[in-house]
Design a protein around this nucleic acid. Structure first.
Lengths: 252, 252
DNA sequence: TAGTGGTCTAGACCACATT
DNA sequence: ATGTGGTCTAGACCACTAC
């Protein structure tokens, strides 16, 4: 059960042993890994060295610690967020699933909608082409997967465009914000989504309840009219262990 | 310069102080953080505690250690990978940049192309709809940004479809693999990309030269003919600190 | 050479969940 | 009540780089 080892640090060798037992399927999702005391005895190392081995797997995101209980193998059962059919209503050939069971029998719902008017942050002001003193309507919301928050979203819309409309209320009615924009004569026609992955800030760890070793995906979506006028900037931060982002497109 | 602190662990308080000095702009990208000895003296803590504070920032991906030199603030200057215009040749309104300077004056080139024939791995076999014993052409390549690898790509194509064509050679000629597929009467028409972010495996850390605290983005692209026949599965692993993924689409 | 981060040890106390 | 992981200390030796 032990790896001979050469110049490799002990804690990485121990981590490699444990990782191999996971990827080989010997230890399945949800199973418990040997604890600090077990590793100290099995490998004849100090407590801190055993801890570093477990910390390595935790930081890789393949294991997660439970206080007073042990360290456990994580699983990955993502929700698929579809970038285009969700927005256009277009259907697409059903793909085979390579991501496991997906959201079968799980609930994904929106909560905590809050609306306010404010000065735009610099990034939103740039994308919306707003000048000094122009204000925005800010719409906050969270997506909950089985009650646990998995995505935080904040949208900015020029106040001059949507003031007095239902977009300034929590419930935007059937079709949501984009339908209301269309009602106002500003139908969204083009969308751009920029995706970036990074490790979370401590505030995001708290608000998303992220396990150690879990990155976030930052999505910045901009909606434009057919003439290229920016209508809305939406900034999302998603728990990367909960989402797969899907984009379908057709070559012209 | 010290935070009073309550129930918060010391090392997180120290990390928070340093993080604040970074996000406030007081310490810019490339600047050096206080070393272990500095922190021990400034906060009256043991060496391991000072180390954990720095390790925290390193694992968050906002700082990176240089042996024998110190710990330095990282910067983020990504390449933008455009999901649709790259494939369709379609142009799009130029967006304002919110990602910093982007790839100005930097080179992004392909290297290390390798082609072989093999049995498909399970995931590719499922997506390509291949039965037992059917083989695939495997095309490996790497993308180098200023000489440093930032993306690893591996494509699978049914051997029965492309055997004998230029797709089995390293240089596929003008227009690349998709142009050759069209030549063969199998023009790609639909594409699907699934993106997922996760922490890298140790092998990926080595082959991409990833700094600690850097996630990877895993992209699985499937190309289909207009009749829905799968042509190619491409699996990519990208350095998340080097890429922004961009998707443009038009509502119908 | 001096200073840096990287690894490791041997102890300790704590808060927590019940493997 | 026992064992778990979480934090912290005070030392040590090493490999690496040049602040």
């Amino acid at each position: 059960m032990a790896t001979p080892g050469k110049g490799e640090p002990k804690y990485l060798q121990i981590a490699a042993d444990l990782r191999a037992s996971i990827t080989s399927g010997e230890r399945g999702p949800g199973s418990r890994l040997p604890g600090e005391n077990d590793l100290m005895a099995a490998y004849q190392v100090a407590r801190e060295t055993a801890r570093k081995a477990l910390a390595q797997l935790i930081n890789e995101g393949i294991a997660t610690p439970r206080r007073g209980a042990g360290v456990y193998v994580r699983e990955f059962r993502p929700v698929i967020r579809n970038g285009i059919t969700r927005l256009s209503g277009q259907t697409w050939p059903e793909g085979k699933s390579v991501w496991g069971e997906e959201a079968e029998g799980r609930s994904l719902e929106v909560g905590g909608v809050q609306v306010s008017e404010d000065d735009p942050p610099p990034r939103a002001a740039i994308l919306l082409g707003l000048g000094d003193g122009e204000r925005v309507i800010v719409r906050d919301r969270r997506y909950l997967l089985d009650g646990k928050p998995v995505l935080l979203a904040r949208s900015y819309l020029p106040a001059s465009l949507v003031a007095g409309s239902r977009i300034t209320q929590a419930d935007t009615g059937p079709g949501g914000t984009y339908a209301r924009l269309a009602d106002l004569g500003h139908a969204p026609a083009h969308f751009r989504e920029d995706l970036r992955a990074r490790m979370p800030e401590p505030g995001e760890v708290a608000s998303l309840g992220l396990a150690p070793g879990t990155p976030v995906v930052e999505v910045i979506r901009t909606a434009y009219t057919s003439s290229g006028e920016p209508l809305e900037v939406s900034e999302m931060v998603a728990d990367a262990s909960a989402y797969v982002f899907r984009y379908d497109f057709t070559s012209t």
